[in-house]
C-alpha cells in the first residue's frame, strides 16, 4: 500500500515538473502540419540541397564505409573531439571534415551550404533520441553552458531559465513560450522565412532580452548547446523542424 503510494507520488512529480516537451507541442495545428509533411515542409529544401552536396563531397567516406553512415550521429552532438581538443557541434564537425579530410576552407556559419549540410546530417538522425556525453573533457563545457543558461543578463535582467524553466506555457507577445529545446534545429522559422541554426535562435533570444548576442559558433554558444542537449536528453530529433 505504502510502496504504491510512493510510486504514485514519484510518477506525478515526474510528469509535471520534469516532463520534457518538444516545442512542436506549442505550435498551432497548421504549423505542426507544415512540419509533418515532407513535401510541404520548406526546411526539406535545405535538406535536399545538403543531400546533393553530401553526395559530391562526403559520400566517398560516409556511406557504408569504415567511417560509417551518419545515421543517428547528430543525436550524440555536441561532443568533445580529441584531435581538435575542443567541443564540436555538428556544424563544427562538418567543417573539421572539410579541413582535415577535404583540405577545404571551413564554411561560414549560417552560409547556405553549411545550413544545408548540417540540416542533411541532422535529418539522418530524425527520430533518434538526444543522448550526449557530459563527462570527462566535456564537463567543463557543460558547466559553462549551464551557467550561461541560469545567468541573468541584458537590459531586462532575465536568464534563459526564467522563461524556459519557470514560465513555459505562458504567452509572451503573442508567442507561447516552450521549454526551449534544441531538437528542431537547424530549423525553418516562419519569421526568418528561411532555415537557420540553433545559434541564430540563441541570438534571437539574447536580443529579445536586450543582451548582446554572442558570435555564431562561439565557444559559449557551443557550451550552451551541450547543456540544452543534456537538458533535452531523450527527446526525439525533429530536423527540419518548423517554428514561428
Amino acid at each position: 500500500m505504502r510502496a504504491a503510494c510512493i510510486a504514485f507520488l514519484l510518477w506525478a512529480s515526474l510528469a509535471s515538473a520534469d516532463e520534457v516537451i518538444s516545442g512542436y507541442e506549442f505550435l498551432t495545428p497548421e504549423t505542426q502540419a507544415l512540419q509533418d509533411d515532407d513535401f510541404a515542409n520548406p526546411g526539406m529544401l535545405w535538406v535536399e540541397e545538403g543531400g546533393s552536396l553530401f553526395a559530391q563531397q562526403c559520400a566517398d567516406c560516409h556511406t557504408q564505409g569504415s567511417n560509417g553512415n551518419l545515421e543517428g550521429v547528430a543525436a550524440r552532438y555536441p561532443a568533445f573531439d580529441q584531435d581538435a581538443q575542443t567541443l564540436l557541434n555538428i556544424e563544427g564537425r562538418i567543417n573539421r571534415c572539410r579541413e582535415i579530410h577535404l583540405q577545404a576552407e571551413p564554411l561560414a556559419y549560417e552560409s547556405k551550404a553549411l545550413l544545408a549540410l548540417s540540416a542533411y546530417v541532422a535529418n539522418l538522425s530524425k527520430g533518434h533520441a538526444i543522448d550526449v556525453d557530459i563527462d570527462g573533457a566535456a564537463q567543463r563545457y557543460f558547466t559553462e553552458g549551464r551557467d550561461y543558461f541560469f545567468r541573468r543578463k541584458g537590459q531586462f535582467n532575465l536568464a534563459c531559465s526564467q522563461c524556459h524553466d519557470d514560465h513555459w506555457g505562458r504567452m509572451l507577445r503573442g508567442d507561447r513560450i516552450s521549454q526551449g529545446h534544441p531538437n528542431a534545429f537547424p530549423g525553418y522559422r516562419l519569421e526568418w522565412q528561411a532555415m537557420g541554426s540553433l545559434h541564430r535562435r540563441f541570438q534571437d533570444c539574447d536580443a529579445g532580452i536586450r543582451a548582446q548576442p554572442l558570435a555564431l559558433g562561439s565557444r559559449r554558444y557551443r557550451s550552451l548547446e551541450l547543456y540544452l542537449a543534456w537538458r533535452a536528453r531523450g527527446l526525439i530529433i525533429e530536423v527540419p523542424g518548423v517554428r514561428r
Binding site: L27, T28, P29, E30, T31, A33, L34, G174, D175, L190, E191, Q193, R244
Partner: peptide, 12 residues
C-alpha cells in the same frame, strides 16, 4: 484560412 494565424509570413 486558419481562423488565427500565429505568423503573417506564411499563412496556409
Amino acid at each position: 484560412l486558419p481562423p488565427i494565424s500565429e505568423n503573417g509570413y506564411s499563412v496556409p
